[in-house]
């Protein structure tokens, strides 16, 4: 039982990293507004929150950022903290939204997408000691609606398939 879960989570972790990598090679999304990402990896995180637990999702999310740091951007530099803070903000707010509101999985996804942006902006403000970037926030908020919906719908589909799969394999 425990082994099965570990294997599943490892596979999901690998999937989330691959999704992040693929996404960074799609130039269209980022060129509309820099910093805007579809955030497909977030679908995996949502899946884990819903199917497993907040703790597992948190662990997976942090490991994802660490591994992506090693693969792509480097560890413990500003970009690393930028991603880490976005991921942490997003996962904590998603958990709160799931636990304490009546939002569906799509709503939770929008919250995640939105707080991901907020978390990143907070890091920029801290590191660069400049509040001006906050004027950028409304645009990111606006973009978190479509990206949140797309990711949320994806997560919803995947979750129902995943549940069937897991039940079958027992």
């Amino acid at each position: 039982m425990e082994l099965r879960k570990t294997v599943r989570l490892s596979m999901l972790l690998a999937l989330s990293i691959v999704l992040s990598l693929i996404e960074s090679y799609i130039p269209i999304v980022g060129s509309i507004i820099p910093g805007v990402k579809l955030g497909l990896a977030n679908a995996v995180i949502i899946l884990v929150i819903y199917f497993y637990s907040f703790k597992d999702a948190l662990f997976l999310s942090i490991t994802r950022v660490l591994l992506l740091g090693i693969i792509r951007t480097g560890l413990f530099n500003i970009i690393f903290f930028f991603s880490l803070n976005g991921a942490l903000f997003s996962i904590v707010t998603m958990y709160i939204a799931k636990r304490f509101t009546k939002l569906s999985i799509v709503g939770v996804s929008i919250i995640g997408s939105l707080s991901h942006s907020v978390g990143q902006i907070v890091i920029v403000i801290i590191f660069l000691n400049n509040l001006n970037i906050i004027f950028y926030l409304p645009y990111l908020l606006l973009f978190s609606i479509p990206t949140g919906i797309i990711v949320g719908l994806t997560a919803k589909e995947v979750l129902s398939l995943y549940q069937k799969l897991e039940i079958k394999s027992y």
């Binding site: 509101t101 409304p138 606006l142």
Partner: peptide, 24 residues
């Protein structure tokens, strides 16, 4: 998507647009 989701979307949308206008 349920009713609450729609409300959330409307709320974010209005927030964002108002903020953009204020910054303009």
């Amino acid at each position: 998507m349920n009713k609450n989701d729609v409300r959330l979307v409307i709320f974010i949308f209005i927030m964002a647009i108002s903020l953009i206008l204020v910054t303009k």
